[in-house]
Design a protein around this nucleic acid. Structure first.
Lengths: 171, 171
DNA sequence: TTCCTTATTGCAACTAGTTGCATCAAGGAA
DNA sequence: TTCCTTGATGCAACTAGTTGCAATAAGGAA
C-alpha cells in the first residue's frame, strides 16, 4: 500500500523521485520544524550529492499540494513540517522572543467571518502572530507601543523634505 | 518641530543618520509596499553609494520600533511600509494568487481572545492569510484540500523506510 | 522488456540577506 | 565651538534562495 502522501503527489501529476522521497523522509523522521538548509543537510545523508535546487523545488511542490506547511516565526527563516494534525499556532513576542503555542480554536471566529463574508477558505494550519507578551508589556508600553497610534495621522508630507535637506550636506 | 517618527527614533536611543533618513523618506514618498532591494535602489537616488547593509539594518531598527511594518504576502519577499492607519489585511489565494484586502475588524474576536486568555498584545497591523478564494474552491476541492485532513493521521512511520529502500538503488 | 515523452535534476550564475570588523561620524559634554 | 564616546556605516566574505538550460531519468505505452 502506497503512502498517502506519495499517492497525493502522483495523483497531482508529479513524479516520485529519490530526491523528493529524501525530502519527505527527512520531514517524516522528526517532529521538529526544519529550515531548508537543514533539510538539505539531512537529505544529503541519504543522497550525498543532492543539489539544493532540488530541495527547494521539492519543498515548493509539497507546499503547493498542502502536504507540507511553511512556518514563518519571524526569525528571517522559513521552517517546514509535514501537514499533520493537530494544527497549532504561535504567539511570538517581539520583545523577548518567547514563543507560546496556542490551539486552533482561537481562529474559530476569524475563519467563520472569512468564509461567510468573503467566501475565502483560509489555511490556518500553522500561524505566527507577532506582538508583545504579558511579561514584556510593562517595559514596552512607555517606549513604543503607545506611540504608534498617535503617530500615524501625521506621517507623510513633512518627512521627504527633511531628508532632502539633509542629504545635500557634504560628506 | 521634529517629525514624530524621527523623534521616536531618538527617544529610543538611536541616532539619526542620513542613511536612515533616506530609508524613511523613500517609504514616506509612496503608499506602495516596497521590498528591501527596491528601497535600496530608491534610496541610492538620494545617497548614491549607500550600502545595502545600512538599508537592511535601518529596516530592522524601524521594524523593531514598530515604525515600519514588514509584510509577507507569501511571494518569498518581505515588503515594507510605514506603520500608518488604517491598518488592513490581505487574503492571498494560493491557487490563483489573487489578493483581497480586508479591514481590521475581522481580527476583533481573535484579538480579544489573545488578550484575555493569553495576556498577549498582538500586532495585527498588516497580516496575510493564505487560503483559497471563492472562485478557485471548486477546482481545488477535488485535487487537494479534501485530502489534507484525511491524510494527517497516517503519516510518519512507513515513509522513512520507503525512502531508504529507494535510495539504495544504483544511479 | 524496451522505447519515448517530458518532468525533474544538477549546475552555474545570479539576487537577496547577514555578519564581523575597521573606520567614521552623530550628538552630548565641556 | 571643539572634543570624545560609542553607535552606525562600508566593506568583504559569507549563507540563503532563484532561475535558465542542457542532461537525465520517471513511468506510461507498446
Amino acid at each position: 500500500m502506497e503512502h498517502p502522501l506519495i499517492r497525493d503527489l502522483r495523483q497531482a501529476g508529479y513524479r516520485l523521485t529519490p530526491q523528493r522521497e529524501a525530502v519527505i523522509a527527512v520531514l517524516g523522521e522528526t517532529h521538529a520544524h526544519l529550515t531548508a538548509p537543514e533539510i538539505l543537510r539531512r537529505a544529503q545523508e541519504h543522497i550525498p550529492h543532492l543539489n539544493k535546487s532540488a530541495v527547494y523545488r521539492a519543498l515548493d511542490v509539497l507546499t503547493h499540494l498542502s502536504l507540507v506547511n511553511p512556518i514563518d516565526l519571524g526569525k528571517g527563516e522559513i521552517q517546514y513540517e509535514l501537514n499533520c494534525l493537530p494544527h497549532h499556532h504561535h504567539l511570538v513576542c517581539q520583545q523577548c522572543g518567547k514563543i507560546t503555542d496556542v490551539g486552533e480554536s482561537v481562529f474559530g471566529e476569524l475563519e467563520k467571518i472569512l468564509r461567510t463574508q468573503y467566501g475565502f477558505a483560509p489555511f490556518l494550519y500553522h500561524f505566527a502572530i507577532f506582538g508583545i507578551c504579558r511579561a514584556c508589556q510593562p517595559k514596552v508600553r512607555r517606549t513604543r507601543v503607545s506611540l504608534v497610534l498617535a503617530r500615524c495621522a501625521q506621517i507623510e508630507q513633512p518627512l521627504a523634505r527633511r531628508a532632502t535637506r539633509k542629504r545635500a550636506r557634504p560628506r
